[in-house]
Design a protein around this nucleic acid. Structure first.
Length: 606
RNA sequence: GGACCGGUAGCUCAGUUGGAUAGAGCAGCUGCCUUCUAAGCAGCAGGUCAUUGGUUCGAAUCCAAUCCGGUUCACCA
């Protein structure tokens, strides 16, 4: 338990300081000891005077005081006990509006404007694992995968900024019937062609054969039905489907030519994925392959049976009864002795525990698997795996089109590579229209288009609460104005330009801190900047990058108002000029650090 | 049928440990570049917070019911 006295007030947010001051004041006044969580502090509404507001209703009953009497006593005591923090208060209908002293904000800016790591926490020694991306090797990545990749990468960076040691992992689904379908189609239709022959990325190349398989399958089913078969029979007997099933059987038997083809086609896919990952900034400390992990967990079924966690049915199949937890019975081993999907996940959870020993293991997986992960965690807990309580499913909603869900069979899937290139092309077009960077080299321009195009795309997908499904409209594409990545990137470039023109490598320290004369826009910007560390913490606790995205947008918006309202380089006097340059530099830094945890770069010029 | 998630402005989304007159962006309409980047700023307009009831000083937020949409409950992965 850290006490107020031993904590460094400099590193504590204003809101926390207000809460602690209120706890202390209430204890002093009424002899009642509250926790900081009991104190509700909000930003003061703009129409009232003040910066932060303590909501009094919560204590009115407990302290048996009228809101007015309580507010007056609390307000007076807060001011008396914290003369450096508060300058005045006013009381409106149970809301205690507090004015924070300008010198508090001035000292904050003075202290932090050169701190390149502002917002980051020191190492806390805790280890976290983030599993994300997790593609199938039968088709290329699409828009939904992009949301997954950006979320995974971002949550890893957010946790790092909060002092965690983070390992990123990926599990590649490189085996199973879907891969066999691509293999069968390739044998039937490719005439030995390889990706290089058609100038196609390997993942797209293999994906094309997956589509060809499905087309052929549909054709064969239709023919069989026309020949008098029932739909069910036709689907079962279609020659390509039988071939795919035989392929899977041969794969599991280790038939050399099947393994060789499988390895060859997967190698094409990996080359394609690597290119995409490099482009979008995904990387992994360790990649697992299902072909190597799919047999994991079998020993855990045995030990679970011995412990009585699992039970065996008459046919030999093994189950767990989760009805007491409000779920159903769940199969963990088939009657033929083979594993099911969840068995390998249990085994992999154990293996990850052994390899990484992380206190928290985050799985970035779509919300259609909510039930699966609820079951997985429960089973691991019942088996007593040490990692069980640390399992966290970072569940995210589907990306939908205005017409509904994306369906690969109907060709309505938005391809990841295509979308990235489209965004970069739009960035190029808009940049050329504005004509502000005509002196850039070819290389600098290419880099700028990447920064902007990918920034727009990432921000679009990260600005929404992960839990919620979201809509992407390909007709409207993604905007570069308003609540967007480029808007924030633009603000950064704008600040950098101002700083360059100030003629100083860095604003000097302000020896003459002006007292109590912050203008409203200067103060609003200071308050917003001060929140950044708390926002980063909140984003980590909630596993929610959108908190950072929304914050960064609001910061940029406030800066732009500040910029429009006040001259920075030609301020009224030297103190103001220094202060505004410091504010500008700190804003640029916070934008950069905030965007960085979203995986978005910011340009010096645009 | 059971479980879970969602429904807020024309569109896309914030806001939900209960707090003041529900906020942004886009789209629409007005203004603002001979001073630091107009990918910007200022303003106007736009709402039965799905519906009904309840809890209380106070409900978009909590509870119940209903309507609508989605996911899931495979000896699939």
């Amino acid at each position: 338990m850290v006490t107020f006295a031993t904590r460094n007030a400099k590193n504590m947010s204003v809101v926390t300081q207000i809460k602690e001051a209120a706890v202390k004041a209430i204890s002093h006044l009424y002899g009642i000891n509250l926790q900081t969580q009991d104190i509700q502090v909000n930003a003061t509404k703009p129409e009232f005077e003040g910066d932060y507001t303590v909501v009094l209703f919560a204590f009115v009953k407990q302290l048996k005081k009228s809101p007015d009497a309580l507010g007056k006593e609390l307000g007076d005591t807060l001011l008396a006990q914290n003369p450096a923090l508060f300058t005045s208060y006013n009381l409106i209908k149970g809301f205690l509006n507090l004015c924070i002293s300008d010198s508090y904000w001035l000292h904050f800016v003075e202290r932090e404007y050169t701190n390149t790591g502002f917002g980051n926490s020191k190492s806390n020694g805790q280890r976290v694992m983030v599993e994300y991306s997790s593609p199938n090797t039968n088709k290329p990545l699409h828009l939904g995968h992009l949301r997954n990749n950006f979320l995974g990468r971002s949550i890893a960076e957010i946790l790092k900024a909060n002092g965690y040691e983070v390992s990123k992992t990926c599990i590649v689904n490189d085996r199973g019937i879907h891969i066999c379908k691509s293999m069968v189609a390739w044998q039937l239709f490719a005439n030995g062609a390889i990706p290089a022959d058609t100038n196609t990325k390997g993942d797209h190349f293999v994906g094309d054969y997956y589509v060809k398989f499905n087309n052929e399958y549909k054709k064969q089913v239709a023919e069989l039905i026309a020949a008098g078969k029932s739909t069910e029979e036709a689907e079962k007997e279609a020659p390509v489907m039988k071939a795919a099933q035989q392929m899977l059987f041969d794969w599991e038997a280790g038939k050399p030519e099947v393994i060789a083809l499988w390895q060859l086609m997967n190698s094409w896919v990996y080359a394609g994925f690597d290119a995409t990952y490099q482009r979008i900034g995904s990387d992994f400390d360790k990649t697992y392959y299902e072909s190597k992990t799919y047999l994991l967990g079998k020993d855990l079924v045995e030990s679970g049976l011995a412990k009585g966690v699992f039970f065996q049915k008459a046919d030999g199949s093994v189950w767990i009864d989760l009805t007491a937890d409000g779920l159903d019975e769940k199969l963990v081993r088939r009657k033929d002795g083979t594993s099911v999907y969840i068995t390998q996940d249990i085994g992999l959870a154990e293996q990850k525990q052994k390899e990484f020993n992380a206190g928290q293991s985050i799985y970035v997986v779509g919300d259609e698997q909510n039930y699966h992960f609820k079951v997985l965690k429960l089973i691991c807990q019942k088996l007593g795996l040490p990692s069980a309580d640390g399992i966290f499913h970072l569940s995210y909603g589907m990306v939908e089109l205005p017409t509904g869900k994306m369906k690969s069979r109907e060709g309505t899937v938005v391809d990841a590579d295509d979308l990235v290139e489209e965004m970069v092309a739009i960035a190029k077009q808009k940049t050329e229209e504005l004509g502000k960077v005509k002196d850039f080299t070819e290389e600098e321009l290419t880099d700028l288009y990447d920064i902007l195009g990918l920034g727009a795309l990432k921000f679009f997908l990260l600005r929404v609460d992960p839990k919620k499904k979201m809509v992407f409209n390909p007709e409207e594409s993604i905007d570069f104005h308003g609540f967007t990545g480029p808007f924030i990137q633009y603000t950064h470039a704008r600040i950098k330009s101002i700083l360059r023109k100030s003629g100083m490598a860095q604003p000097p320290a302000n020896n003459n801190l002006p007292k109590a004369n912050l203008l409203p826009l200067e103060k609003e910007l200071s308050i917003q900047l001060e929140m950044f560390p708390a926002i980063l913490q909140d984003a980590a606790i909630e596993h929610d990058p959108s908190k950072v995205a929304i914050y960064a947008f609001n910061l940029a918006r406030i800066f732009n108002s500040f910029y429009a309202g006040h001259s920075i380089g030609n301020a009224e006097n030297e103190e103001k000029k220094i202060l505004r340059l410091q504010l500008s530099q700190l804003t640029a830094r916070v934008i950069k650090n905030g965007m960085n945890v979203l995986g978005i770069r910011v340009p010096e010029r645009m």
